[in-house]
Design a protein around this nucleic acid. Structure first.
Lengths: 135, 135
DNA sequence: GTTGATGCAAATGGTTTGCATAAGG
DNA sequence: CCTTATGCAAACCATTTGCATCAAC
């Protein structure tokens, strides 16, 4: 793996953006200062960096793939209305795989768990609407 | 919701295919006997049928969306090599949302949980390879 | 007859790939 | 120098949408 400026830009962007950005968010961030960097390069580097373990790929159901500078396992919630993604505080279910009764012969390595619901803002708006109808 | 032949074809296909098919698999199945039915109609009907509760939308991380004639909650495993999807026997974690310490203000409705690993066949192939290298 | 559903094609969003060129080791 | 990485455009996959037409009710 070669040490290119593009790779460094990608790594820095993921770290700066913090909030598990999508590939496109990473690209936009980089493009704002380095417009010559191509989208394909961003995608390729995100994939490589996550495979080498420098960043973490997060598969969040209902959303594009995301990349996280944080390595520790934790879960996320997705707002079904605005798409916001939020870290949750829930102990990681470390040994969930072991409790699967495996009639299928699958060799399990891990799991992806995503909660869904309404974020604070969208829940508030929904509340407003309901109130409006009552009156 | 109107009772069209296309809607019935979609519903029948999901029931016949059983193994939580993707929209495209449903389309291919229908197209083999009714080539005039359009992809868009299949997508629209899958969405409507899942919203009305006649079939169940399954979001499986790393895979296209799938539709299931089975309504009961259960989890799935995805093979990281061949993409196979398999039902798992694991009690549904009914009240998982309640154990989330909600500092984010999210109003949680449910969760999507997908396991990943190697299916029986792919695990066997991987085993073969390793054995080959040893000798 | 109204209205909702269909078929088509085009548009979208997210991601990957082929290929010639450029740059890291 | 050799080989990997880049930039570009095009391809790809999954899904949605605009619109004129058609078929349920």
């Amino acid at each position: 793996m070669r040490n290119t400026i593009q790779r460094q830009l990608v790594l820095d962007a993921v770290r700066e953006l913090k909030d598990h950005p999508t590939a496109d968010e990473v690209y936009q961030h980089i493009a704002s200062t380095n417009p010559s960097v191509s989208r394909a390069t961003v995608y390729r580097n995100l994939k490589q960096l996550s495979e080498s373990g420098e960043i973490k790929l997060r598969r969040i159901s209902g959303s594009a793939e995301r990349y996280d500078h944080i390595q520790t396992n934790h879960y996320h919630a997705r707002c079904i209305k605005c798409g916001a993604i939020c870290d949750l505080e829930l102990p990681y279910l470390d040994h969930l795989e072991e409790s699967v009764r495996d009639n299928s012969g699958f060799k399990l390595f891990g799991h992806d768990l995503t909660f869904y619901g309404l974020c604070k803002e969208c829940a508030a708006k929904a509340e407003e609407k309901t109130e409006g109808k009552k009156q």
